[in-house]
Design a protein around this nucleic acid. Sequence first.
DNA 1: TTATTCATGTAATTTGTTACATGATTCT
DNA 2: AGAATCATGTAACAAATTACATGAATAA
Lengths: 183, 183
Amino acid sequence: MLDYLILGSLTIHEMSGYEIKKLMSNSTAFFSNVSDGSLYPALKRCEESGLIRSKELVENGRYKKVYEITPEGRQVFLDWLEQPLKPFKFRYEILIRLFFARNLTQDKLFQIIDQHIQQLEDLKQSLENIAAGPAKYADTCQKATLRFGLDFYQYLIDWFSNLESQLKGSENKPALANQPENQ
Amino acid sequence: MLDYLILGSLTIHEMSGYEIKKLMSNSTAFFSNVSDGSLYPALKRCEESGLIRSKELVENGRYKKVYEITPEGRQVFLDWLEQPLKPFKFRYEILIRLFFARNLTQDKLFQIIDQHIQQLEDLKQSLENIAAGPAKYADTCQKATLRFGLDFYQYLIDWFSNLESQLKGSENKPALANQPENQ
DNA sequence: TTATTCATGTAATTTGTTACATGATTCT
DNA sequence: AGAATCATGTAACAAATTACATGAATAA
């Protein structure tokens, strides 16, 4: 996955590892925050398999290793782009908490939900900052990606806010216990 | 994470590895589809660290290893439940495709989006089947978890359908190219 | 002068998957 | 008789993280 993120970035133009990281966090942070410890080994791996090649240079007295994509790398990337998607899997920590929330007081549960809403607000804010920024390289599809992030975070914020209201609304009832329903 | 999923399951009642897997896929499949290769080693690990203990028995001529949570395990689980959430991270393959979609013809992009919508419809259907089923152990919070899955998949289906309409609407324009904006 | 940003990397660990391997029971 | 489900596990591999490690340039 990371390899394709690297190849994709290099289809835009040649970049150093550091710049690739920058691009990720300035535009796609919400779906891929890459750590140094995975990026640099991945670059090495891709170079070894001939998908990218590097030149080392010194710019403003700073050592840099700038990578460009090779024709083979471009082909591999284009092939991947068209391939069927892997099965969609999604692991979402707060849902696990929610699933087992009967072990929790309602207050504690609300704390966790509030905390998550705050996380989401922060993430949304950082995307808004990116959206308000210079938005380099942003074509229609890249803008759609950003738009997705904004919409998505807002959706989750609303969903969890709504859940809280509903749980609060049934506060007098045994909220976390089994409630009979017509089945 | 998996360890907590196991502990959480065992707060409901004692279960074998197989039953834990069943519980996951019958109620929380959409956020945690656990493979044998991770579940059984995890059970071993938890037992070695004293969080759970097992008894082996033969039921209907079938060998079983039934696990129950220990008081220490319960405490570890409850502590975890209340702990701050880890930073929310989300990697979503189709967004990476979308981000680099300028390397793709519009037709190919639509194929990918359609394929993803189909994935989501299938996942939603499987959740609907679960929701229509006997819904064992389903307390309010567990129902909310299921509800989340249904709402979430529908949201994504709508979002991507909408994206397609929008892209189709601008088909005469250079859809995948950089479109100037007021910045 | 001190913190931040730029810049690259390694080592140990974590967490999980896929494929392999086995075997009994029950449903059709 | 054969397929599906029940039931448990190992071994090899994959992908990524965290912590460690270094060091120059620039902005406060």
